[in-house]
Simulated scan of single mutants.
Amino acid sequence: MKISLLLLLITALCQTVSNAQSRTYVLVHGGWHGAWCWKKVVPLLETNGSRVVAIDLPGHGDDKTSPAGVTLDEYTKKVVQLAKAQTGPVILVGHSMAGVIIAQAAEVLGKEKVAKLVFLDAFMPKNGESVFALAAKAEELNKAEGKPTTEPSLSQCLLLSDDKQTSRVDLDRVAQLFYHDCSADDVAFAKAHLGPQPMGCLGTPVQVSDAQYGAIPKVYILCTRAKDLDKRSIANNVPIQKMYTLASSHSPFFSMPEKLVAILQAL
């Protein structure tokens, strides 16, 4: 009896380790950022044997695509390509604007390839919605509920290019907007790496269906102290499996990576 119990425990332990090792996380950054924003998260996730891929979207980070004119379709194709290159199902994690990207990628990949969608303080769309549409809807709801607006607003922090195809974030205001609970070193690192953001993709609506995107389990991680936009209404925009909260700025990958990783590992 004791030997059987021991064998059972060993089997369960091996299964737990196997499950952890079989997980593959695909991390998709938000606007103006790059794969560099996940620098603290990647090694923490990898400690339990998980595979982790942090993407530079076209025109961001080390990707040398000209950002002017980059489309949502180009973003989506890169996520789909990298997800398909992984063995087995993947967990797509999208921060901020990347919520619409992982939604559109999930529509292409389907539930056989995407085990779960994780929206990290992200725009979680219904069919036909874009980042701009979701932001406008959230702002209207917040105003109707009497929630105070934060200053400076995201729009006040944007510096548009002359041709209006890209924008940058005002570095004098970005710490208050995105990183108010982050260390001085992390803020300096972010300022040195933030790049231009293609604007057209933010206004492009997703084309998703209940059969594909709707069939994939979704988790929302709400950053309750984010100052760019209160996204509580966005977290309830479509049915989700579970909502987690972090008492952080919009950038928990810098300010509380251990807590963020604990949520990701618990999925």
Rank of each mutant, 00 (worst) to 15 (best):
S4G: 03
L5P: 00
L6E: 15
L6T: 07
L8F: 14
L8K: 05
I10E: 12
I10G: 01
I10Y: 12
T11P: 01
L13V: 08
C14P: 00
C14V: 13
C14D: 11
Q15V: 10
V17T: 10
V17A: 13
S18T: 10
N19A: 15
S22A: 15
S22R: 07
R23H: 06
R23V: 07
T24M: 04
Y25G: 02
Y25Q: 02
V26Y: 05
V26E: 09
V28Y: 05
H29A: 04
G30M: 03
G31A: 15
G31P: 01
W32A: 13
H33S: 08
G34H: 03
G34D: 09
A35I: 03
W36Q: 06
W36Y: 11
W38R: 01
K39P: 00
K40N: 14
V42A: 07
P43L: 10
L45R: 01
E46Q: 15
T47R: 12
T47Q: 15
G49N: 08
G49E: 12
G49D: 14
S50T: 13
R51E: 15
V53L: 14
V53H: 06
V53D: 13
V53N: 05
A54T: 04
I55Q: 08
I55H: 03
D56F: 01
D56N: 07
D56L: 02
L57W: 10
P58Q: 09
D62T: 07
D62G: 00
D63G: 00
D63S: 01
D63Q: 03
K64H: 14
T65H: 04
S66A: 12
S66W: 08
G69Q: 09
V70K: 03
V70Q: 08
V70R: 07
L72Q: 14
E74P: 00
E74K: 05
E74S: 12
Y75C: 08
K77H: 14
K78V: 13
V79Q: 11
V79F: 10
V80D: 14
V80L: 10
Q81A: 15
Q81N: 13
L82V: 12
L82G: 03
L82K: 10
K84R: 15
K84T: 09
A85S: 15
Q86N: 11
P89A: 06
P89E: 13
I91G: 02
I91S: 08
L92R: 03
L92Y: 09
H95M: 04
H95Y: 10
S96T: 03
M97L: 07
M97H: 06
M97E: 13
M97Q: 11
A98E: 09
A98W: 06
G99R: 01
G99H: 05
V100N: 11
I101K: 00
A103C: 03
A103G: 03
A103W: 05
Q104Y: 07
A105P: 08
A106D: 09
E107L: 00
V108G: 01
L109P: 07
L109N: 06
K111M: 12
K111H: 14
K113I: 07
V114S: 05
A115N: 11
K116W: 10
L117F: 06
V118M: 05
F119A: 03
A122N: 04
F123A: 09
F123V: 04
M124Q: 11
M124K: 01
M124I: 02
